[in-house]
């Protein structure tokens, strides 16, 4: 391979990384909002992503043929719809389970109480992924359509040989991810609801003094968090096949992004997810495929051990 070919590979990976990274970034935003507001590490976040994927898959299988938008655009619409659907699941789950061990109640639990929410979400993850196996089956499925296999050619960029192929489905997904993130950031920054969630995150006691129902704020934050990650899952679903266990590897990818960006910051989480996407794709040029995720995990360990506050953390604008 000559230098130009390396360049082409690199550009190709970079573009793919940015597109994948935008989707990871979206999922990271979902995770970080839960941590930011509730100080809860949600182990089951990957499983909510999985739920978003299967939501898109089943809706597509059932209604795909009648789709108003036609088969091409319908998967993306369903991905967005996965948000509200999983939001409801999250709100329900928070009311039934999570609420019992977080916030002020969690503080009352003795000794291990500190970890009660961590272990509880681990239990939820186990039930969801294994229950998923029962409900959805173990064979990989996908919501791929023509767009998933089509690409725009960009170039030639350098000389007459180096051109980059941009996957169409990924591009649409990445743009949608960006729109959702910006929309959500505006909700958090501009609306009264968003401000009250941030106030609850900053100081739950003081938020109560203001008349904010902190339990409700937590419930909404949990719903938003899992809903947003589910949209990310729905968008990824048109990309690659998946099965019910897919959550486990993605939960680390998400945490890597979130920790990279500084726990609790929306902007940081998105940039962190974006960086992880790029890292994953670019490392694939020199490393074997199986080690892609290992690179991410090792990266994650290095970040968390040496710079746990992250790199993109914008201390003053946390949510």
């Amino acid at each position: 391979m000559d230098a130009l070919q390396y360049l082409e590979n690199f550009l190709q990976s970079l573009v793919a990384g940015l597109l994948m990274g935008a989707m990871y970034g979206l999922m990271c935003v979902g995770l970080t909002i839960i941590f930011g507001v509730m100080r809860v590490i949600n182990f089951a976040q990957g499983e909510f992503m999985m739920l978003g994927m299967y939501f898109a898959y089943f809706c597509f299988a059932w209604f795909g043929t009648y789709a108003f938008f036609g088969g091409l655009w319908f998967p993306f619409f369903l991905a967005l719809l996965a948000g509200p659907a999983v939001f409801l699941v999250g709100v329900l789950l928070h009311r039934l389970l999570i609420n019992a061990v977080t916030g002020r109640r969690g503080n009352k639990l003795e000794a291990q109480g500190h970890y009660a929410q961590l272990v509880l979400t681990l239990g939820v993850a186990l039930v969801l992924q294994n229950g998923g196996l029962f409900l959805f089956g173990s064979s990989p499925v996908s919501v791929a359509n023509e767009l998933s296999y089509s690409a725009w050619e960009w170039g030639p960029v350098v000389g007459d040989r180096v051109s980059v192929f941009v996957n169409q489905a990924q591009t649409i997904s990445a743009l949608l991810a960006l729109v959702v993130v910006i929309g959500f950031a505006m909700l958090m920054n501009k609306s009264r609801l968003g401000k009250s969630l941030r106030a609850s995150a900053d100081n739950p006691d003081a938020a109560i003094y203001m008349g904010i129902n902190v339990d409700r704020a937590h419930r909404l934050a949990f719903g938003f968090g899992v809903g947003i990650t589910a949209i990310g899952g729905g968008l990824l679903a048109s990309n690659a096949p998946f099965q019910p266990y897919i959550g486990t590897e993605y939960v680390i990818i998400m945490y890597a992004g979130v920790v990279l960006g500084g726990l609790g910051s929306i902007r940081g989480a998105f940039l962190g997810g974006l960086s992880i996407g790029v890292l994953q794709q670019v490392s694939a040029i020199i490393l074997p495929n199986q080690l892609q995720n290992t690179v991410i995990f090792i990266c994650f360990l290095i970040i968390i051990l040496f710079r746990p506050q992250g790199f993109f953390g914008n201390k003053d604008r946390t949510a």
């Binding site: 401000k195 941030r198 006691d205 203001m210």
Partner: peptide, 23 residues
């Protein structure tokens, strides 16, 4: 108005006041 002030550090002054007016 709690001990040690307990303003919301990541909110602006105006946003803090808006939260005061939450009810």
């Amino acid at each position: 108005v709690p001990e040690g002030r307990q303003v919301f550090p990541s909110l602006t002054i105006l946003e803090n006041l808006e939260m005061g007016a939450f009810a």
